[in-house]
Design a protein around this nucleic acid. Structure first.
Length: 814
RNA sequence: GGGGGAGUGCCGGAACUGGCAGACGGGCCAGACUUAGGAUCUGGUGUCGCAAGACGUGGGGGUUCGAGUCCCCCCUUCCCCA
């Protein structure tokens, strides 16, 4: 009798052997179709928990399946290694971010190896190494040259006491984390990428296979609205500006404007404020500085504002409109000014009620009697009190008003996006330095490509200031101007880490290429990514930035495609005790103990089985032991001596072939559609069936051997170590992972008999086992012969009979 | 407030384009083998009912010969945006 299943031994053994043989080493091969399967690379946080496994294992199973189906599969792995936690570790524990990060990489790489995936480790990328971030900086320069990178002022969190910039997480309830001083917002010159240039294209997802909800989220993120930009005339002594422009989606309501609201930081506020209002206005501006944008926009918050004592004129009706400031208007959206139409906008309605501003109706509800409104009416209606437009339906009015505005030169049709440019400056150490030099004479000077990388100095001081530590590193800051050689200063901010992950999938094609970020021929072979999998939390940020990057590179002629990820799939989340796993909750499941006790193969199979991949589910030890039992049973079944019994015969052999081929068909389809849970259950069913066959000895040796072989091949992607071991023990040639995927024969998979359901008035009355070839007439006759069916037909007239071939007969009676 | 999911036995979940609800696994119950069992094997397991049968996929309505599946309303819950 064979020895027992011992995953500890065989898993390590095969992992070593595969590595020695370079079994999963990938090179370009024009004779096979390529398949680029990418899993989002992990952040180097320290340990892989079971959630990481959940992201990684089914992706590996699918990649292995593709490999067996004859594809040349690239399935790489790497590490997203820059970012704040490394710097916090430096501050808290006095360990250098590089050391901390690389220790984590070592540990995570070890854990990832224990999974037994087909990663080609020679292609690993680590974003914090100079050989990588040199190209991150190179891309910055390319974007700068293309006019897609620019410097502008943007607000940051500022602590007046510490005299420093704070990161968002250092602001606790609006106060400085350390000294408790109220945090205000202050403008700082920072770098932006002009992602808004691609707003329209980023809304479209033509030709790519992405989940509908991710596409919707991205469209909402871009936030396109159509409407008009309208100039309200300004005539204010001593002010050069002659108009204030507002964007509105409702030009049909312009006759109902009774006030205008500017963002408190609007540049005209200082000039327009009447002296007697000054104190109140300044006080209001000061208070709104302390609020975050999210607070300012919160719908449940009371809308507040202050009249500044100035007016504009409504071009359509010539009325004087008082100017207010209100912090629910943001400078960064639209023009930083909105028109107030209280009768037809909820926020404006509340605002007008509070400050007793008039609320004239200009869009009449169908049942309107001319009275006052109880609440804002935002639906379509008929235009009233609107001069020449009276009587027009409001939907048609939008167009008519636009037409008129354009004719008179008072405004124009316009599109407004919610999307803002991407702020990439971080006042942090652990990131790729922005390759820019500031020179007294030459101004902003990009670092020449030949001088890359701009290395992060090792000896930076980590003060928990929130300000870039590079600022206090003279060897780094002080340099010479690349243009005029005069003394100059380096940019001390580093780049947002989303920048590193916006192009890493390009690097895997040629990770050691030194003449550029990628070798063009290799890129052409592998890209775009065929299947990209990862968590849905990256729906907007990472996936959005990566798409922007690729589109920008396409327009520079650097890549030949406009979408990086052909198909996107989001797996669900593994939860523990009904809660999301997190370090702070202390409910993180580390897979190492399970791997050493039950084996990686059992953990792999369990994660596939626990729930549909896109859904995720609860981690449950007892479910895992069920899988372990199955693999054990399978092990003994495969290695057991098989001897046909006296009852062995052709019918049972046909039945076994049928089940086997049906299983091939099912498993193939399930893997193709990433339905791993049902794939595993199909393999369990086949195992159970084989156990019965074995017990009965009902087939000849050849049939048995063939079925076992198929079972192993079908299981190989899911349980690579176990199947490799059994494959070898059965005497087949190494490696099972180089075998072609089994094909099914549709004829053999065909059922000979089916269960015909007989219903009377839609209620199940009998089940008949009939040959598949049964005709409608035969089926009806058989049904009539059924005692149980007849009982329900007695004394009734048959009105109609519905027959679904091979499935069902429904007799409708009265 | 807007957008998107999800509600099926005791539990995780099956059910392809409407056609046998509950596959597979866990748990539980009974039995076998055992010095022992958190091992292994066999059988059972939606609810009510002795049975025939009736009921049953969050609730209510609808379409249909037939609805877990399609349509409308409602409830619960999760995620994203505000």
């Amino acid at each position: 009798m064979a020895s027992g299943y011992n995953p500890q031994q065989i898993e390590e053994k095969w992992q070593r052997r595969w590595a020695e043989d370079k079994l999963y080493r990938v090179t370009e091969d024009s004779t096979r179709p390529k398949w680029y399967a990418l899993t989002m690379f992990p952040y180097t946080s320290g340990d892989l928990h079971i959630g990481h496994w959940y992201a990684v294992v089914p992706a590996d199973v699918h990649a292995r399946f593709k490999r067996m189906r004859g594809y040349n599969v690239l399935h790489p792995m790497g590490f997203d290694a820059f970012g704040l936690p490394a710097e916090n570790a430096a501050i808290k524990r006095g360990i250098h971010p590089f050391t901390w990060t690389m220790q984590n990489v070592d540990n995570m790489r070890r854990q990832l190896r224990s999974i037994g995936a087909i990663y080609d480790w020679s292609r690993e990328v680590i974003t914090c190494l100079p050989e990588y971030y040199q190209w991150t900086q190179w891309f910055f320069l390319k974007l700068y040259q293309a006019g897609l990178a620019y410097r502008d002022k943007a607000p940051v969190n500022w602590c007046a006491n510490c005299q420093t910039v704070l990161a968002n997480e250092q602001v606790v309830n609006g106060f400085c984390e350390r000294c408790g001083t109220l945090v205000t917002r202050r403008d700082l010159a920072q770098w932006f990428f002009r992602i808004t240039k691609y707003a329209e294209e980023l809304r479209q997802h033509d030709g790519i296979d992405w989940p509908e909800r991710i596409k919707i989220m991205q469209r909402n993120w871009v936030g396109k609205s159509q409407g008009a930009e309208i100039a309200f005339a300004l005539d204010h002594p001593g002010v050069g500006e002659k108009e204030i422009r507002v964007f509105t989606t409702r030009p049909d309501t312009v006759f109902g404007v009774t006030f205008m609201v500017l963002a408190p930081e609007h540049p005209l506020v200082a000039e327009l404020t009447a002296s007697e209002r000054l104190a109140e206005v300044e006080d209001y501006i000061e208070r709104s500085r302390r609020r975050t944008d999210i607070e300012r926009l919160a719908t449940e918050r009371e809308k507040e504002g202050v009249f500044i004592g100035a007016y504009v004129t409504n071009p359509l009706n010539g009325e004087k409109v008082p100017i207010w400031i209100g912090d629910y208007v943001l400078m960064s959206y639209g023009t930083g000014a909105v028109m107030g139409v209280p009768a037809h906008d909820e926020r404006d309605f509340i605002f007008a009620k509070k400050y007793k501003l008039p609320i004239p109706v200009v869009i009449a509800p169908s049942d309107w009697q001319g009275g006052e409104l109880e609440a804002a009416y935002t639906e379509p209606g008929v235009m009233v009190n609107s001069g020449r437009f009276n009587g027009l339906p409001s939907e048609a009015g939008i167009d008519a008003v636009c037409e008129y505005l354009e004719e008179k030169g008072w405004g124009k049709r316009a599109v407004s996006y919610r999307l803002r440019d991407w702020l990439i400056s971080r006042q942090r150490y652990w990131g790729a330095p922005i390759p820019i030099v500031y020179c007294e004479k030459c101004g902003i000077v990009p670092v020449p490509e030949a001088d890359l990388p701009v290395l992060l100095p090792e000896n930076a001081e980590f003060k928990p200031t929130g300000e870039s530590p590079l600022k206090y590193c003279p060897e780094f800051v002080n340099t010479t101007c690349p243009q005029c050689a005069a003394p100059a200063r380096r940019e001390t901010d580093t780049m947002d880490t989303f920048m590193c992950s916006s192009w890493y999938f390009l690097r895997y094609a040629s990770p050691h290429y030194q003449a550029g970020p990628f070798a063009p021929d290799k890129l052409d072979y592998w890209l775009p990514v065929d299947l990209y999998t990862g968590g849905a939390e990256h729906a907007v940020m990472h996936l959005f930035y990566a798409r922007f990057f690729v589109k920008a590179l396409r327009d520079m002629g650097l890549v030949g495609f406009g979408e990086p990820f052909q198909r996107l799939f989001n797996q669900g989340v593994i939860i523990v005790e009904r809660q999301k796993m997190s370090k702070s909750r202390g409910n993180v499941i580390n897979p190492d103990a399970y791997v050493s006790e039950l084996g990686a193969d059992a953990v792999r199979a369990y994660l596939m089985f626990v729930a549909p991949w896109e859904q995720g589910g609860e981690w449950d030890d007892s479910g895992l032991s069920g899988i372990s039992r199955w693999l054990n049973r399978l092990w003994h079944l495969v290695l057991a001596e098989y001897s046909p019994g006296e009852a062995a015969g052709a019918e049972a052999e046909r039945a076994l072939a049928r089940i086997t081929h049906q299983t091939i068909r099912k498993v193939t389809g399930d893997l193709e559609r990433l339905r791993f849970n049902v794939m595993v259950s199909a393999l369990m069913e086949l195992t159970n069936y084989l156990a019965k066959v074995k017990e009965a000895g009902s087939v000849n040796k050849e049939s048995w051997v063939g079925a076992i072989k198929t079972l192993l091949l079908l299981l190989a992607p899911a349980a690579p170590h176990l199947t490799e071991e059994l494959w070898q023990r059965l005497g087949y040639a190494y490696s099972i992972h180089n075998q072609p995927w089994p094909e099914w024969d549709e004829t053999l998979a065909q059922d000979e008999e089916v269960t015909l359901v007989v219903q009377v008035n839609g209620k199940l009355r009998d089940r008949l086992t009939v040959p598949v070839s049964i005709t409608e007439a035969e089926a009806k006759e058989l049904a009539q012969g059924s005692q149980r069916v007849r009982a329900h037909l007695e004394g009734k007239t048959v009105i109609k009979e519905i027959y679904v071939p091979g499935k069902l007969l429904n007799i409708v009676v009265k």
